[in-house]
């Protein structure tokens, strides 16, 4: 018995094979993983940013820390790892977001891989810069 859907499947363009541009072997990472990371890092950023904003701007006289206050703040053994983690996570979230915006232009799999690698380098450079800055301030006599 032939049903109407069979006729449609037999119609031009109704074949069942995976269209070429959706071939899984072109994939760099599992689809959706970037999106999940964005949600996870986003949640972390929300928590860490709230702490950062309250500690640096809302509980401080005048709304901003002067040099001595900054040093006192970041040399706190709880704050230092939290601010370092904030740097790592917020730069990841931000760069991953920009990467998603760029990917929305429908890049080729090869172009996507290049963009990803460039962004990993930028991310690592950001962390090196931030950690160096923190190290200078924390170790300054």
């Amino acid at each position: 018995m032939t049903g109407p859907t069979d006729e449609l499947r037999a119609a031009p363009g109704g074949g069942r094979e995976l269209p070429e541009r959706w071939a899984p072997e072109e994939r760099d990472t599992l689809p959706g993983v970037g999106w999940a990371w964005q949600a996870i890092t986003g949640a972390l950023v929300l928590v860490l940013l709230t702490l950062h904003m309250i500690a640096n701007h809302f509980v401080v006289q005048g709304g901003l820390r002067d040099y001595q206050q900054v040093i006192a703040y970041i040399t706190n053994p709880i704050i230092l790892p939290l601010e370092t983690l904030f740097l790592v996570v917020v730069s990841w979230h931000g760069l991953l977001g920009l990467r998603a915006v760029i990917f929305d232009f429908g890049l080729s799999a090869r172009a996507e891989r290049i963009v990803t690698r460039v962004f990993v380098v930028v991310w690592l450079a950001t962390i090196v810069y931030g950690v160096t800055l923190l190290a200078i301030l924390v170790t300054r006599p």
Partner: peptide
């Protein structure tokens, strides 16, 4: 319908995740 096949199409950067 061929569910794994259809989900394979959807589970793609240019599918449901876009």
């Amino acid at each position: 319908g061929d569910v794994p096949f259809v989900l394979g199409l959807a589970d793609d950067p240019h599918g449901a995740w876009r």
